[in-house]
Design a protein around this nucleic acid. Sequence first.
DNA 1: CGGGATCCTTGAAGATACTG
DNA 2: CAGTATCTTCAAGGATCCCG
Lengths: 122, 122
Amino acid sequence: MKPTHMRHSEDCRAVSEILSRVGDKWTVLVVDYLGQGSMRFTELKRAVGGISQKMLTTTLRGLERDGFVTRTVFPTIPPRVDYELTDLGRELLAPVQALGAWARTNISRVNAARERFDKEQQ
Amino acid sequence: MKPTHMRHSEDCRAVSEILSRVGDKWTVLVVDYLGQGSMRFTELKRAVGGISQKMLTTTLRGLERDGFVTRTVFPTIPPRVDYELTDLGRELLAPVQALGAWARTNISRVNAARERFDKEQQ
DNA sequence: CGGGATCCTTGAAGATACTG
DNA sequence: CAGTATCTTCAAGGATCCCG
């Protein structure tokens, strides 16, 4: 579309795109649970907790589209659908969990900063 | 505190919270540019490109609140405001850039998966 | 059981105008 | 220059009903 602005900016937008995908409300939770192994729809819904079936469907479709998850349908009655991380999904898990580790160890510092900021603002 | 699988959900929500903060539309871009050093408002606005002044203000306020950037006002005319990463901000930069590196090296696989998925769906 | 199709409510984000 | 103040748009997310 437009002339190549800066490669810097371009790269960052790719990063932002991945981060938006991963950073949405439910994706990390779902991916993390699937990191333990294959799960079916309702199982996942119970595990995550608080997610609507619509959002779980949307989240899983997005993950499937991006190649992070496989969807396997068993044409039985009642139907059964299994979700599982792909290789790409498992590879993604590593840097995400690194960020997760950072978040866990530093969440208290963030919360402290927030309280300080909010207090100064009255 | 508890068995590892018991703090699972709790931790993930903390992770999700950080990821939502970091994964919003502009935060990563802004943090990344600030990773190069202190910058002032308009300078940052030009660098990021496409961001409205409102969103830049909102993004910077959020980062300041969470303790990731400092805001320094010079009471001159015209006014001058510098933004700079804090230690916490620079520490965050590491795992974020790790995820960024993953995104850059794998974005093509993601895009390929998307094309495949979209084609199958017609 | 695993969704699809709708409707509805928010809040995020953009555009524009004004100001110390 | 570095914001604030409004107004508007738009899509994420939730609630509900239906169906093979």
